[in-house]
């Protein structure tokens, strides 16, 4: 599969560090021109996967192609087609913001003049013009990330890798970064993004995969993933905590499913298949039982729930495997 429609392809990639297996048969196919989210907890292998796909790390087995080039045998072509913005701002801390951008432009074969002009454009676009002549080391975390992203865009890459790009960013910087990513995709760049924040993947990604202990445990659209953990959920908050057991019984009878009770939040929730019918039934039954309700809603499951469920299930399967 080297056609133009797949921008990133990983096929059974394995990577071991000594005795630790970081990636254990990692598969991935990112359609060109889309945003693809790689989700997973710390230590799941997200960063290892990105470092392999960006030619920074060698791998032990499997096959990887990026922008149509083989990562192992043709790394220079891959490097010419990609940019990486990692977890830690990869900019020169002594040089000024402007000097950084000019240097990276020159290293990407822009003429001195074009590199300078491009640096000005990017400084302006990322709101760094005022700080352009200060050492990047004096920048705030958010500014450094913006400079880092700008450095990745000096020559717009065909594939942009973002490794946890918003970790530690304040909400405003985060929104700015999200906007920049959307603009890039509109211009035809493929973006592979790793994140621990499911909200981020939900906002940005066309497709996501969830990895845990070095392997993809689920793949699809965010909607598809949410659907995999079942239906919508009914959530209600009772006015008086002593009503919780009675409310749970009512909910279980109406939904036919096990309800979860959170005593602290005075909350009962359960999956529902037929939203409106169940909602009506529950409200009527509660009214009959004389239970006062503070809040009630039916909602789609969050990606967080999908995530916990998927990685948790995987962990259980492993535990069984070890025991047998």
């Amino acid at each position: 599969m080297t056609d133009d429609t797949t921008a990133v392809l990983a096929d059974g990639i394995r990577k071991r560090y000594g005795r630790t297996t970081a990636l254990d048969g990692f598969d991935l196919a990112v359609p060109a021109g889309t945003v693809y989210g790689v989700l997973g907890p710390n230590g799941a292998g997200k960063t290892t996967a990105v470092r392999i796909l960006t030619t920074l790390l060698r791998f032990d087995a499997g096959r990887a192609r990026v922008a149509g080039y083989d990562v192992a045998s043709d790394p220079d072509r891959v490097r010419a087609a990609i940019s990486l913005t990692g977890q830690y701002a990869a900019v020169d801390e002594v040089l000024s913001g402007r000097q950084n951008l000019v240097l990276f432009g020159r290293l990407r074969r822009l003429s001195a003049r074009r590199a300078r002009r491009r640096a000005e454009e990017l400084l302006d676009r990322f709101g760094l013009t005022e700080a352009a002549d200060r050492s990047a080391g004096t920048y705030s975390g958010g500014m450094r990330r913006r400079l880092d992203l700008a450095a990745s865009l000096v020559v717009p890459p065909r594939v942009l890798f973002l490794d946890e790009p918003t970790t530690g960013l304040d909400p405003r910087s985060r929104n700015g970064l999200w906007t920049a990513v959307r603009e890039l995709v509109a211009d035809g760049t493929t973006v592979l993004l790793t994140t621990q924040y499911l909200q981020e993947a939900d906002h940005l990604a066309d497709r996501v995969c969830v990895i845990d202990t070095g392997r993809v445990v689920a793949e699809g659209t965010p909607e598809h993933l949410k659907a995999r953990i079942g239906a919508d959920r009914l959530e209600l908050v009772v006015a008086d905590a002593t009503d919780l057991p009675a409310a749970a019984t009512v909910v279980e009878r109406a939904t036919g499913a096990a309800a979860t009770v959170d005593a602290e939040l005075r909350r009962v929730d359960a999956p529902v298949a037929d939203r409106i019918a169940v909602l009506t039934a529950v409200l009527r039954a509660l009214d009959d039982a004389g239970i006062a309700v503070e809040d009630v809603l039916v909602r789609r499951p969050t990606l967080d729930e999908a995530f916990l469920r998927l990685t948790g299930a995987h962990a259980d399967a492993q535990r069984v495997g070890v025991a047998s």
């Binding site: 030619t55 920074l56 220079d76 072509r77 490097r79 990486l84 830690y88 990869a90 290293l107």
Partner: peptide, 17 residues
């Protein structure tokens, strides 16, 4: 030890540079 080396290494520049 600096993060910037990751960027240099992911650029299509000479390895010796």
């Amino acid at each position: 030890g600096r993060g910037v080396v990751d960027r240099f290494r992911s650029l299509p520049m000479a390895r010796s540079a």
